[in-house]
């Protein structure tokens, strides 16, 4: 039998120098062979549209690093671990829902509070959907598989949050009226309610951020942290104040995903800032371009919190959001000294 004469102990092209690669590294490192490839990333005509798209928005991004492969997701999630983790989290979420359903929780909610849910919480699935598909965009344009995969998992997290809202919409409609489960009603709020318009303007524009690093900055460093704070902290607190502990707990549970999201996006931001001196200016430039729109969006939505039976004033909501986003911003910005 003629066979190979040597055996290999690790990938020949991802040798870590006598260190055994862990499972995450084995299935993540050096997967984006096409990044920076000459004459074009993909084996079609170099001038074909998608080659040009990647050359412009990925290879041609103003944000650059010598080796994107050095960045790792701090949670080191590969598919298998992501799924195992979320399997457990969904079991937890199901138990939360079970517990409140056994108490016939929805029936006891104040109709005035349900109106707030219908105006703020249920239409949020449009916003989450934009975050979901923008994560898929960042994933497909990212320069390394570590970024791609983390971003894809994040997209799935948004779909998870969105589906629980859809579940709640239907569930609430059973005791509080079919409008709550009427798609045209939710769409009308999203398209026409003044409280949602700055958010809608922001999120529609987010879909046009095509430079991958701008999309990452806008989505993961500016827009998502603010929306997550608004819903998963401020609105969750409002739900608790209005005796809607089910909504509060589902939002907190979704907040666990957001925390994991900030771990990797914060780590990537730190990596980017440290990778090249010029990167800071681009990231901060994009941040300052997107921040005013985010502020307007949060302000408009915060104004709706006052309509709850146990209301929260807009200023305190803004403060909650500011505090959370500032803390996150400090975690990546001040960690890397400017040069």
């Amino acid at each position: 039998m003629t066979g190979p004469t040597r055996s290999l102990r690790t990938w020949s092209i991802a040798d870590a120098g006598r260190r055994r690669l862990n499972e995450y590294e084995i299935v993540t490192k050096k997967f984006h062979y096409h990044f920076g490839r000459q004459p074009a990333p993909f084996d079609l005509d170099p001038d074909s549209p998608i080659n040009q798209w990647y050359l412009r928005h990925r290879e041609g991004s103003p944000v650059q690093a010598d080796s994107w492969e050095e960045f790792s997701d701090p949670a080191q999630l590969n598919y298998r671990r992501y799924i195992a983790l979320q399997h457990d989290r969904e079991i937890y979420a199901e138990r939360v829902v079970d517990r409140f359903e056994a108490l016939d929780h929805d029936a006891g909610l104040d109709p005035a509070w349900v109106a707030v849910l219908g105006r703020v919480y249920l239409p949020a699935r449009f916003a989450l959907h934009v975050l979901q598909i923008t994560s898929l965009y960042v994933g497909q344009l990212a320069p390394s598989a570590a970024i791609t995969n983390a971003s894809f998992f994040q997209a799935a997290d948004e779909l998870r949050a969105l589906q629980w809202i859809a579940y709640r919409a239907k569930s609430l409609s059973l005791s509080h009226g079919p409008d709550l489960a009427d798609s045209t009603v939710a769409r009308r709020v999203w398209e026409q309610d003044p409280a949602w318009q700055p958010a809608r303007e922001l999120l529609e524009n987010l879909l046009l951020a095509y430079d991958w690093a701008e999309a990452f900055t806008a989505l993961d460093l500016v827009v998502k942290p603010a929306f997550d704070a608004l819903f998963k902290q401020a609105f969750a607190a409002l739900a608790t104040a209005n005796r809607d502990e089910l909504t509060a707990q589902l939002l907190h549970e979704s907040g666990v995903d957001s925390g994991r999201g900030q771990d990797w996006t914060g780590a990537l931001a730190r990596y980017i800032l440290a990778a090249r001196p010029g990167n800071r200016e681009h990231i901060l430039g994009w941040e300052s371009r997107w921040q005013p729109r985010v502020t307007r969006a949060i302000d408009a939505l915060a104004g709706t919190f006052g309509a709850a039976p146990a209301p929260a004033d807009a200023a305190s909501v803004r403060q909650t959001v500011d505090q959370a986003t500032t803390q996150f911003r400090n975690s990546w910005l001040t960690a890397v000294p400017a040069t």
């Binding site: 699935r125 779909l159 969105l162 859809a166 239907k170 398209e191 529609e204």
Partner: peptide, 24 residues
């Protein structure tokens, strides 16, 4: 298990289609 089955709410998780108002 939560009381609603997938088919009860599924359409509400895929109704995020709208007319763009601020961009083309």
């Amino acid at each position: 298990m939560p009381k609603l089955s997938r088919s009860d709410w599924y359409d509400l998780a895929r109704d995020m289609n709208w007319t763009f108002g601020y961009v083309n």
